[in-house]
């Protein structure tokens, strides 16, 4: 004898608006990444095809040759060592530029000191990095002071302008609120002034860093005896194009890593309240 039991049915779960929104967002992200990947494949493919067919492969080595050279240079330790040198220079130079930039930005709140620094900051912002790289190369040769000074001169003004704007727009209503509750000056600075300035500082760092990065490599090309820029110069002089392109690739990977990983992680960590605002 067989018994037939009705299959147990659970009520179908209705997709909430939130679920739907999340699904749409995920699909959207996947599509964006798909197109991005397609872009990479297309241009790398075009490059590989051109090498040896449209142009001599000694003049335009394909991506496969460049990646192979990259792996070789990585294995010999040349890439990590050049990375370390360049990054150390950027780190020290940018730290100095940050300190100078913040200090000048704070001093410029005074009317007279504003007049004192204003044109210097304008010159700092408008002068191309190439000019500072050339001047410091002529004055300092291959000494470390060259790239460091070039970074400070090209970057501090970006930080200064941002800090200055941040200080000008300090939220007086919040500071008054804190005063009325008897909150002390240190606590006010920590919880109101710093969080208010953070996005301005972050914008300054982001722009400043991208400038510092380029000018460092430029000074290395002109006058250093180590670092990514120096390796590029050597590769050019010896007509080793796969090596030259390898260093460009290294440059690109590092810039992408700093921009997409380091800075974005910092942004997510410190500015989550703005994301909630958008939501």
């Amino acid at each position: 004898m067989s018994t037939v039991t009705a299959p147990s049915t659970s009520p179908p779960r209705r997709a909430s608006a939130e679920d739907l929104a999340r699904k749409t967002e995920r699909a959207d992200r996947l599509r964006t990444w798909g197109w991005r990947l397609a872009g990479y494949l297309f241009f790398l493919g075009l490059w590989e095809f051109s090498s040896g067919r449209l142009m001599d492969e000694n003049l335009l080595p394909g991506p496969s040759a460049v990646f192979a050279t990259f792996a070789d240079l990585w294995a010999t330790g040349e890439v990590p060592s050049a990375f370390a040198t360049t990054l150390t220079r950027i780190g020290i130079g940018f730290f100095l530029a940050f300190v100078v930039g913040v200090l000048v930005g704070m001093l410029m709140q005074n009317r007279w000191l504003n007049g004192f620094f204003r044109d210097a900051v304008t010159i700092g912002i408008t002068t191309p990095g190439l000019i500072w790289a050339l001047i410091t190369a002529i004055i300092f040769g291959n000494r470390e002071a060259g790239p460091l000074l070039a970074i400070v001169l090209t970057t501090f003004a970006v930080i200064t302008v941002n800090v200055s704007e941040g200080i000008k727009s300090l939220p007086k209503d919040l500071i008054d609120m804190a005063k009325s509750f008897g909150v002390g000056v240190l606590k006010r600075n920590r919880h109101i002034v710093l969080p208010h300035l953070a996005p301005f500082l972050f914008t300054g760092v982001r722009f400043g860093f991208s400038i510092a990065w380029k000018v460092t490599v430029l000074t290395e090309v002109f006058s250093s005896s180590s670092g990514i820029g120096f390796e590029m110069r050597t590769a050019t002089q010896l007509f080793r194009l796969p090596e030259f392109l390898t260093w460009i690739l290294a440059f690109y990977i590092l810039a992408l890593f700093l921009e997409k990983v380091v800075l974005e992680v910092i942004e997510r960590r410190f500015f989550s309240w703005r994301t909630s605002l958008k939501a």
Partner: peptide, 23 residues
């Protein structure tokens, strides 16, 4: 003293509880 203003004057970068704890 405590003060209630015309607008709420909350710190936008702190949660509601942290806004209360701030004072």
């Amino acid at each position: 003293a405590g003060y209630v203003f015309q607008s709420a004057r909350l710190l936008p970068w702190r949660t509601v509880m942290d806004n209360l704890l701030f004072v």
